[in-house]
Write a protein that binds this DNA or RNA. Structure first.
Lengths: 341, 341
DNA sequence: ATGAAAGCGCTAACAA
DNA sequence: TTGTTAGCGCTTTCAT
């Protein structure tokens, strides 16, 4: 049925290839790696034998010799995955393009597990570690003076000497604000997540900054609550009470925006004609499913992951390691909910 | 600042430990692995030296010798992650509990990439591969006669000799149906995804099976459409037209259910008093955000992942490999939308 | 109880 | 141009 040594159970070594090609092991190695000089015919013969036998060089042996493993660890603290998955994909994208493979570890937010995993990764001689999370709040570093570089993505290390890459929440808020002003809105409300979240505070700051430059204030003040639809529904009612003439609402998340949209609808306010709506996250199932498809801020999570991976690769390659916090710009995704009224 | 050899850049080998403890390499190895006999004092001295130097045995060297790597590959075709992430977590859970680490690969649904990754994994001498996906439709096998066992999770191989583990969609549909009947509903409608999806067909089959046992038929027939909220809204209107007296609606997904809920609300039907609603997926942000929190079918994706990992570990351990399709039972998560009226 | 030596699969010097 | 050899870090006989 099939060829190859699989059936025998034995894995094919370079020794087998050399034997099949009638050359020495060293010659086979050179042929396969395209180094040194040799007759073209010999090289071809070795290659053919390798092909025939489905030879795959053992990376353990190669790594042992080279002192490298071409692997990195990816430690995630966001089992839920909504934020860290895109980050992981971006990272895997950037890493996988090279020959670097990624070990995945989920800590379930348990520091013990986390420590355990980091140890395991180091034991496996990963050449670097990416730590991802679901909030940007500073978290304890996974360790000082680790033998390999570490980059934090979509989370931030408390240790200033670590490198962290996070979304530009403030810029995202500003983006939303400018867009609303540009479409002629001037009475902009803001319903967002808990004040305890840096992300919520920064998005609000981005909004208020732009508004005050235009001589405006947030209509009905910034309303903090849960990151939930339910809060969006409540918050919208509070806002409509406090500022009945509101003509735009910027929400701290798409989920909140959906709740807001529902209340607006029930209170007879049309989106976007009467009230424009902007969400945050560009979480497509939410943003597209919203009765009026949501204009929303995209944090470019994939880009965060790619950037983290790129910095890690640089560090592994020996470039001077950056430290501190880097932000990745957000972008605005335009949909119906802010069409010019 | 810190101790350890990190600063020197050199990694600590067993040779260093042996030297520090004043014993030979062989003795150090035995001491560290707790094999052979030796004076307790000697063993202690070696352990202390290892501790002091932060010695971590090089798994490449160990693996090279043992012919094992204690790694498996996880190939996912669901970048989006909604389905395969829980599966991955379950798998990683079961694997990580041992000493097995997981290489993550995302194919972005590209067969070329997939092949490329499988090759890379095999080159790295993974001891097994798990393939996950976002639909249960049979897909091409990643290869016959691979040198390592393969398990498909949340996707199914076209090759009958492969082992695939998928959710019990039909059982899930039946579960929903029985629950609705048990709460006194008899005119049950069904709004679901495209007929082209096995999952949609099976869920419908589960429903109709139970209904016909009770001498009932699906109210207004099975309505197929997109897996979207928008379709849920439309479908509900169609259903209300075809069967105005409908008193329960089973939906093929939570997203569809949300759309249905919205239309019901607009048409003045209360959930659950007038119409009971059951979703599918237990996708919490959707199910909980729904105006009436959704009773829904949970496919136990984590369990699928765990089962896949467990079977893979068995196969790696040399147990006779099973083949064919295994299903993991679904469970019903009760919420407000089906409270007894 | 401990040490010496071989060898896992591979690469890179060095010999021939 | 090709072959031989040493050695990456570790475990495991087999001597001592």
């Amino acid at each position: 049925m099939s060829n190859s040594a699989h059936e025998t159970g034995r894995t094919v070594t370079i020794r087998d290839v050399a034997a099949a090609a009638g050359v020495s092991i060293g010659t086979a190695s050179k042929a396969l790696n395209g180094v040194g000089r040799m007759r073209e015919e010999t090289r071809a013969r070795v290659m053919a034998a390798a092909e025939e036998l489905e030879f795959r060089p053992n990376p353990l042996a190669q790594g042992l010799l080279a002192g490298r493993t071409y692997t990195v660890g990816l430690v995630t603290c966001d089992s839920f995955g909504r934020f860290s998955i895109p980050v992981m994909l971006g990272a895997e994208d950037a890493l996988g393009a090279g020959q670097v493979s990624v070990f995945m570890c989920d800590t379930r937010d348990d520091p013990i597990r986390e420590h355990h995993y980091v140890e395991r990764l180091l034991a496996r001689r990963v050449e670097g570690i990416i730590v991802t999370g679901r909030r940007t709040e500073p978290r304890p570093s996974i360790g000082r003076d680790l033998p390999v570089p570490v980059v934090y993505a979509m989370t931030q290390s408390q240790d200033e000497s670590d490198l962290s890459i996070i979304p530009d929440d403030e810029g995202g808020g500003a983006l939303a604000a400018r867009h609303l002003l540009a479409t002629g809105r001037t009475r902009v409300g803001h319903v967002t997540g808990p004040q305890g979240f840096q992300a919520a505070r920064r998005r609000a700051a981005g909004l208020t900054g732009v508004l005050s430059e235009a001589g405006l204030r947030v209509a009905g003040d910034v309303l903090h609550g849960d990151w939930s639809e339910e809060w969006g529904r409540q918050g919208a009612d509070i806002l409509l009470h406090a500022a009945p003439d509101v003509d735009a609402i910027f929400c701290g998340s798409d989920q909140i925006a959906r709740g807001v949209a529902e209340t607006l609808r029930e209170r007879g306010r049309r989106v976007p004609e009467d009230v424009a709506l902007v969400g945050f996250d560009n979480w497509e199932p939410m943003a597209l499913g919203c009765r009026t498809p949501l204009t929303t801020v995209d944090m470019n999570l994939g880009e965060i992951g790619r950037a983290a991976a790129a910095h890690l690769l640089d560090a592994i390659a020996g470039e001077p390691t950056r430290s501190g916090v880097l932000t990745v710009p957000a972008t605005l995704v335009l949909r119906e909910s802010t069409r010019r009224g």
